[in-house]
């Protein structure tokens, strides 16, 4: 049996939130709240609350990136400074820690920022190939709910969305 993806468009957040609540209350057979994707022109914290715990892990990458930055900074600078041994040091250390700390701090931020950006691009699935289910009205003022259902549930799902005042329903084969 083939699967279909449906995009139901709503006029603002209130009807969309009502619809998600109804799905949560198991009023749409075969679809749970975990299967829902909500598309909206702005971020709405209530949506996050209703959809439940969907963790974001970018900060872990940020931490690793920053850690790498500070370590790399130290070894990068030290390896450059180590080649200064041929130079008379005049009693000064070959690897000066106080000034290296300043530069390691900059490296920490540099790598922290870049890792955060790469993690964002990866984890938000920006480059991922997706279906054609999309509407330009989603960047104006409408809110979309995407669900994936079996072919035999199509009629039911359409009716469910229509009952919840969907402005438009689009579908594609998954």
């Amino acid at each position: 049996m083939s699967k279909y993806r449906l995009l139901a468009m709503f006029d603002g957040f209130d009807p969309a939130i009502d619809t998600i609540n109804a799905i949560k209350a198991e009023k749409l057979a075969g679809v749970s709240v975990d299967d829902i994707t909500v598309m909206s022109p702005i971020e709405h914290p209530d949506i996050d609350e209703i959809l439940g715990d969907r963790p974001v892990n970018i900060q872990k990458f940020t931490f690793l990136g920053a850690l790498f930055g500070v370590t790399f900074g130290f070894f990068f600078l030290s390896s450059a400074q180590a080649s200064f041994l041929v130079q008379p040091q005049g009693g000064k250390p070959v690897i000066p820690f106080p000034s290296n700390f300043v530069l390691m701090y900059e490296m920490l931020i540099f790598f922290g920022v870049w890792t955060t950006v790469f993690a964002f691009l990866w984890m938000s699935g920006l480059f991922r190939k997706r279906g054609t289910l999309y509407s330009e009205k989603l960047t104006v003022d409408q809110v979309g709910i995407v669900v994936e259902v079996e072919e035999h549930q199509l009629e039911n799902t359409r009716a469910f969305f229509n009952d919840h005042n969907a402005l438009e329903i689009r579908e594609e084969k998954a």
Partner: peptide, 30 residues
Amino acid sequence: LGWRGDDRQWRNFRKTYMLMACFLIPLAIS
């Protein structure tokens, strides 16, 4: 970059923006 404004993208976006803001403040001062 294929932005569609889905909940996953918004969540990650907000977190990224906040983390970058947190980096930028000490960076600017430094």
